[in-house]
Design a protein around this nucleic acid. Structure first.
Length: 841
DNA sequence: AGCACGCCGACT
DNA sequence: GTCGGCGTGCTC
């Protein structure tokens, strides 16, 4: 690619300009000039290459084309245009802007996560010897570094800029390079390359000449009669592809690997190619099909039952008047089928559909199902996809190949141009909220915004709707449809509580297992049924402690204890990833009485292996599912009853349907209930209800055993009765009392720095500013969070509560931003970083 | 964010 | 004196 000098003076009178979005967290607008010859090719949404600062090249998106030059500076020129079609359409740009404003970040930050990095360019500076430079004439003027670099460059083509410091063995090389450029000894240039490469497969086919007549083919065979290897290859080709009877198949050709992997000689094939009997060609192949190849699922035939059909009608009716509808359907009520019918209808109208699902629900199970119904028109957007795969989905959506997309959070940003419907499944899931990096957006809420931009409808689905969404439905902002019966009239599972306080007193506990739960497990196993155990904490134990001196290993960089992981016998920090071997003796006093405290999935697994030695047990948590397909492997093993008991974290609670699970056991609910967060009750209700939903299918009644120190807690009673409504009423009452969402909007500000004192001072100062401008009562804190140091950054939080309907949100956010700016202007607080999280999860 | 510049201590 | 560390300011 030829790059032009950005500072070159324009030859012509009228120049156009562009304002661009650059992938950088700077809130300013940047305006560039368009060179005359590129002018016809520059349009809104196109990618252009711009120089930003002295050394950086960036991929920018054209946000606006303008007639007038900037007033106070000389604009640089755009260096190149990368597209013939817009990469980003106008609606996407509107969404980006909306998100940047609402979540208080820059459009550049939105761009950064919105487009796959394969659509961005990498710019790597390279240094090269100037061929016109005569080394020997100037040898004496050079300092040792300059001399060393030039000598190195004489042997090679070009060297990446970052390698220069290695070559010279010094850190700051810029002076050396600058001086050499001045002497015209070297050239510094930027090499720009498109990162996305389509996957190509090599194919071969017969030259057409041989298919034109039987005679040609006979002559070919005759010429090969003594060349056995080559003849074999020809025969193989003809047997795989009957081109003699159907010559049109020759266009398709055969994959080269089919020949070479079939034990045929590569060199013979090469000879055939060289002698112009075969020809080689390449086709672009999609990477997207690999995921499903291993999975088989029976045909997915269904008809909606009366209740589902009724729900569908209700939804359609609601959509006549409202844009958003909440589908509250208890677990197992068959929401997915309702979605599918709805999607069919919208697609038939010629509109696009986006179905959003939380990360872990999007498994091969679901994908294969949807493929069965919608075939090639479904695009899948999963977070475990490589960047190249993402680019393929992106392009597929843009080209209209995928009118229907199933995807995670970030699929919101795909280049839809005609959305008719967005479905957000498991709408309550907190994984729809992105925390790091900015934009800290909520995909469910942004789905509503996206749909509005497209004049499309939104269906939110959940068995346990978020309090916010259900409140909006109950106050008539959203439509509401409820599915209160399980599909096929199955019953909701029966909930039992194992009172571990009583069992401990009676000494009927076997380590972490109550007798009620253990007997339940045995009973299920005896009936050849499966069991799911839920413990929402990975590792073996959350910490170690010395019985003699109470010493506990802590993370150096974070204010947490280290979690003990048995399978590697190491201690790990779940916040920064630090690992070290587990100590045999107390580091403080040398005692060997180091004990684990608390319970994680690993410990449950280990104890169970001792209690039930013959049983096939599998653990499913972050540690066992890191590889791309390991999650699916576990799921399919469990489905095929290769596993009797599945122990896991939240992962086991989501969206999966198993036919033979009769019992679900839940550990440690009390910790969940008493977690210090205004959403802890909501989370507990959702999590237990979701995981309970895995128990029992069709005619079989499932059973759930929850271990708790106090079965009388109100929230557990709501769970016991499967009573969402009572849970909701109580929760709404509390939130109204204490001014939490949906009655307020929360903006959380986290102050971060390398020193506790600095963080503390900055947070206190910020609180003063905010109270002065926003109002005393609206600002809570600052408070040190429970974990007040992560990766050597000290944290202190402030909460701003803005009453719904009373406070002008836009104004309030502007005020908040101004106070942050005001703080950052102070010399002493330059090293303080403030994270703004709007609507924190 | 990244990158350059400038000012400072600490080494040949 | 130069090297590299860190604080500061700018990027069209």
């Amino acid at each position: 690619m030829l790059l032009k000098d950005p500072n070159q003076v324009p030859e012509s009178r009228t120049i156009k300009y562009v304002d661009v979005i650059i992938p950088v967290p700077i809130p300013k607008r940047y305006r560039y000039a368009i060179p005359k010859e590129l002018e016809p090719y520059v349009h809104i949404g196109f990618r252009v290459v711009v120089q930003f600062g002295e050394r950086r090249l960036l991929t920018a998106i054209v946000a606006e084309v303008l007639e007038n030059p900037p007033e106070h500076y000389q604009a640089k020129y755009i260096l190149d245009v990368l597209d013939f079609e817009p990469t980003v359409n106008a609606t996407q740009l509107q969404l980006w802007k909306w998100i940047a404003d609402y979540y208080m970040c820059t459009v550049g930050e939105v761009m950064n996560i919105a487009i796959p990095s394969g659509l961005k360019l990498t710019s790597t500076s390279k240094v090269q010897l100037n061929p016109e430079f005569n080394y020997f004439e100037h040898e004496m003027e050079l300092n040792p570094h300059e001399d060393k670099l030039l000598n190195h460059l004489r042997g090679v083509n070009a060297v990446p800029y970052d390698q220069v410091s290695e070559i010279l063995g010094i850190k700051s090389v810029y002076q050396v390079i600058k001086s050499l450029i001045k002497r015209r000894a070297i050239i510094l240039f930027e090499e720009v390359k498109e990162k996305y490469k389509p996957k190509k497969i090599k194919k071969i086919r017969l030259r057409d000449a041989y298919l034109e007549s039987e005679q040609a083919m006979e002559e070919l065979f005759a010429s090969l009669s003594k060349k056995t290897k080559q003849e074999e290859i020809l025969l193989k080709y003809l047997s795989e592809l009957p081109v003699l009877s159907r010559p049109e198949l020759n266009r398709e050709g055969l994959e080269k690997t089919e020949i070479t992997h079939g034990g045929f000689s590569t060199s013979s094939l090469n000879t055939l190619l060289k002698n112009q009997i075969f020809e080689e060609f390449e086709v672009v192949q999609s990477r997207l099909d690999e995921m499903e190849e291993s999975v088989t699922v029976e045909a997915y035939d269904f008809t909606l039952n009366d209740i589902q059909a009724g729900a569908l009608d209700d939804i359609l009716e609601i959509f006549k008047e409202r844009d958003v509808c909440l589908l509250h359907g208890i677990t197992g009520s068959g929401k997915t089928e309702v979605y599918i019918e709805l999607v069919k209808k919208v697609l038939a109208n010629g509109s696009q559909v986006l179905l959003m699902v939380p990360e872990i629900v999007l498994t091969a199970q679901m994908v294969v199902r949807l493929r069965k119904v919608f075939g090639e028109s479904v695009g899948i957007y999963h977070s475990k996809f490589s960047d190249n795969e993402r680019v393929e989905v992106w392009k597929g959506v843009a080209e209209g190949k995928f009118p229907f997309v199933v995807g995670v959070r970030s699929s919101l940003f795909l280049p839809f141009d005609n959305l008719g419907l967005v479905i957000v499944d498991e709408e309550h899931e907190s994984s729809y909220k992105q925390y790091d990096p900015a934009p800290r957006y909520h995909a469910r809420d942004m789905a509503v915004v996206l749909a509005k931009l497209h004049h499309a409808k939104v269906l939110l689905g959940s068995a346990t709707p978020s309090v916010e969404s259900y409140y909006l439905a109950k106050t008539q902002k959203y439509g509401l449809v409820e599915l209160k019966q399980r599909y096929g009239n199955a019953q909701l599972p029966a909930i039992h509580f194992a009172d571990i306080r009583k069992e401990r007193k009676r000494k009927t506990m076997k380590s972490e297992f109550s007798s009620l739960l253990l007997d339940g497990i045995k009973e299920s196993l005896n009936l050849n049924e499966q069991v799911i155990l839920f413990q929402n904490r990975r590792g073996y134990a959350p910490f170690l402690t010395c019985e003699e001196c109470a010493w506990t290993p802590k993370c150096n960089q974070c204010s947490v204890s280290l979690t003990y992981h048995m399978y590697r016998n190491e201690l790990r920090c779940h916040y920064c990833g630090y690992r070290e071997p587990a100590p045999k003796h107390c580091i403080a006093c040398g005692s060997s009485k180091v004990k684990t405290v608390g319970v994680g999935t690993e410990k449950i697994e280990e104890e169970l292996k001792v209690l039930l030695p013959e049983t096939r047990i599998q653990r499913m948590d972050l540690d066992t599912t890191k590889r791309k397909y390991s999650y699916q492997k576990i799921i399919s093993d469990f489905e095929n009853q290769q596993i009797d008991i599945l122990i896991g974290t939240q992962m086991v609670s989501k969206g999966l349907d198993f036919d033979h699970v009769s019992l679900v056991g839940v550990f440690d609910v009390d910790r969940m209930i008493h977690f210090p967060d205004f959403r802890s009750h909501e989370r507990t209700f959702q999590l237990i209800t979701q995981v309970s939903g895995r128990a029992g299918r069709r005619e079989k009644l499932g059973k759930v055993i929850i271990q708790t120190a106090n079965p009388n807690q109100l929230i557990l009673q709501h769970v016991f009765n499967h009573d969402y409504w009572s849970f909701f009423k109580r929760e709404v009452w509390e939130r109204k009392q204490y001014l939490y969402p949906p009655f307020t909007r929360i903006v959380k500000l986290s102050v971060k720095s390398e020193s506790r004192e600095l963080t503390d001072h900055a947070a206190e100062q910020l609180a003063v500013y905010l109270r002065g401008r926003i109002g005393q009562k609206r600002v809570l804190g600052p408070e040190f969070p429970v974990i007040d140091k992560i990766r050597n950054q000290y944290l202190k939080d402030l909460i701003v509560k803005l009453e719904r309907g009373k406070v002008d949100l836009v104004k309030a956010k502007t005020l908040i931003a101004e106070q942050i700016e005001r703080l950052r202007q102070q010399k002493g607080f330059r090293k303080v970083y403030i994270v703004v999280d709007v609507d924190p999860a």
